[in-house]
Write a protein that binds this DNA or RNA. Structure first.
Lengths: 354, 354
DNA sequence: TTCTACCGTACAATCGATTGTATCGAGTAC
DNA sequence: GTACTCGATACAATCGATTGTACGGTAGAA
């Protein structure tokens, strides 16, 4: 190893890498001690002479000093960064959660790093491990897939974690929507239009969110005094193809077909529209369709899809805040926040044909 | 500050944070020097006794030792991580590029961190700066928006950068598709179906990619001996709404309307279908539509959209590889790779009505 | 005039790991 | 028997920043 210990002359050969200015350079140039420079750079100027403060800061600027985050992180024992894990960036649900979390991070001077980790892939644990030492905590946005493996890996990491829009039996720290209410909102809307025959394309019933929406759907039916055949409920697995398959199953069921479809996610809703088109079923003429998750594409499907907008930004914000609390030593809780569910009416819903 | 310097007893009060095992703990427990432990943990066992090697590794495992990445990064001066900047995770184009880069990172033992930075937002520079010291290099996937600000901030960072599917006049390091060929592929396909009146919904003409696709479109027309009116070209700005507006403009143009639309991106294609539906124009009966960017949603629009699939995974891979080369000191280059453009025929295209 | 405060700044330990070089001891050759 | 070699491991500097405490000097009080 070449070690020109006291030769600060930048190597002229490697044009790319300019010598990095460090704190000791600033201190020397300003004629003060390293510790003085350190404090003044960080505005801990309480006891210092204004003159010194000014000089140090000026020199730092002139030299283009920027603190080395690795060194800082090592000394402080923290990274000032958190990670958000998502299973699938192709799913429409995550971006607004991400942005909410991003906002909070920015307010706190933290960096948000995103990592896509497919929970079904084999190397997820190594990817998780690679996050170690880079972040102080983890937000897990896994609403849409089975994820038993992930939680195991997370435990090993020993980092504070908050689950977002997804519960787990053993997880204390999680931020959830009132999914029962969200599902019920769709039924209420359809019933309000006059529908009495409402089928349900659910999210994956292996997931917490799927189960709770199913429960909300059922509760709403009972509240409205409705009963539907068992084969009007189908698991759409949180995917386009799953939604398609579920819709085919419902429409071809022995019980005849419903006048409306309550769908647990936008991607499944797109699948449902696709199936109905293939079956030559008019939407909303013969069957109305409504789905959870608002996104710009919903305005441009055929027909434009009526959706339920959830306040996912707020979800992301709240989750990030809880994570920061945990970093400060607070215990994790299971919090259910108001999703501020709002129907965005478009052309896929209408009163049933009489 | 509480400094129980030589009191390694973990505080029983803070149940959350278990005392972290460090290398010196392992060394002590194994009865060897820190340096020995360091080397053996990293399999630099060249000169060591097999017995010692075994003992150190066993102790490390027993104690659950995991190397502190911050300390390692500080010592080594590198992070073993790179970042990928995307402007908008809602755009369908990025996920496969991301995954390609992810693959290469994994092969090299690097971590890929994703960061969404809206190039039009005001705080982009602070977000960029927050990446400093966390990553060794940056992949910039900005194909779809103006980004003059970003490049400025990147320069200041002084990190090796590679631009992905996006050129810049002054950028040496970039990996690009042959966009002229991609655009031409759409025209060829439409002409092959018998169309002679082909309009163009282009990507934002303020972007490099937009300009090059426009050029390819024009070249293809000439090659086929076709000429079209000026108002059959409209800028769709890489967005759904832009694509809609551009389609309205073309369809309402004084020159009458074309029999086919060649659209530069899937999102704009969705906008185009939306506009055509609103205009009661039959697709593909009156107007065929084809767009660049394959994605599952294209199979489920109405009608399903014929698309051009580009090998974005390869793009991501190549870009990551170039970035690693740059980290090793290689100069950046401007590389154009084969996009392996492939038409995915669906129901939005058909021969023109005679 | 001498002692006490206090102000402004410097000293030095520390975070956890990496790595060039020194050292110790045993075996071998003469 | 002495010197030399080499194998196995220890020593110590270092990466760049943070922070508790010590220290020197000046001013006000006695």
């Amino acid at each position: 190893m070449s070690q020109p210990t006291n030769d600060p002359v930048p190597d002229p050969g490697s044009g790319t890498r300019r010598q990095r200015v460090k704190l000791s350079d600033v201190a020397r140039a300003a004629g003060v001690d390293l510790s003085t420079a350190s404090r003044l750079i960080r505005n801990q100027s309480a006891n210092y002479r204004p003159e010194t403060v000014e000089r140090v800061n000026r020199v730092a600027k002139e030299l283009g000093y920027r603190t080395n985050q690795q060194a800082r992180a090592l000394r402080l024992g923290r990274q000032q960064a958190i990670a958000m894990l998502v299973p699938d960036l192709d799913n429409f649900g995550f971006t607004r959660v991400l942005r909410g979390a991003q906002e909070v991070c920015e307010e706190r001077g933290f960096t948000l790093l995103i990592s896509e980790i497919d929970p079904s892939s084999s190397n997820q644990n190594s990817r998780l491990a690679s996050l170690e030492g880079r972040v102080d905590g983890i937000l897990v946005a896994y609403g849409s897939a089975s994820d038993t493996g992930i939680t195991g890996g997370l435990d090993q990491l020993g980092l504070p974690t908050v689950l977002v829009q997804r519960g787990a039996p053993d997880a204390t720290a999680s931020v959830l929507f009132d999914e029962e209410a969200n599902a019920a909102a769709m039924v209420d809307y359809l019933v309000g239009l006059g529908h009495r025959s409402v089928a349900h394309v659910s999210g994956a019933l292996s997931t917490d969110t799927g189960i709770r929406r199913e429960r909300g759907f059922n509760a709403a039916l009972i509240r409205h005094g409705l009963e539907i055949p068992a084969d009007w409920r189908a698991d759409g697995a949180w995917t386009i193809d799953g939604g398609r398959a579920a819709t085919f199953a419902i429409m071809n069921s022995a019980s005849g077909h419903p006048t409306a479809l309550s769908v647990d996610s936008l991607v499944e809703g797109i699948g449902a529209l696709s199936a109905l088109r293939e079956l030559n079923v008019a939407v909303p003429g013969e069957v109305s369709v409504i789905a959870i998750d608002e996104h710009l594409v919903a305005a441009h499907t055929s027909p434009p899809l009526t959706t339920v907008r959830l306040d996912q930004r707020a979800l992301g914000r709240r989750a990030a805040e809880m994570l920061f609390d945990r970093l400060d030593g607070a215990a994790g809780q299971r919090v259910i926040i108001d999703s501020a569910a709002e129907i965005v009416p478009r052309e896929s819903t209408a009163p049933p044909r009489t």
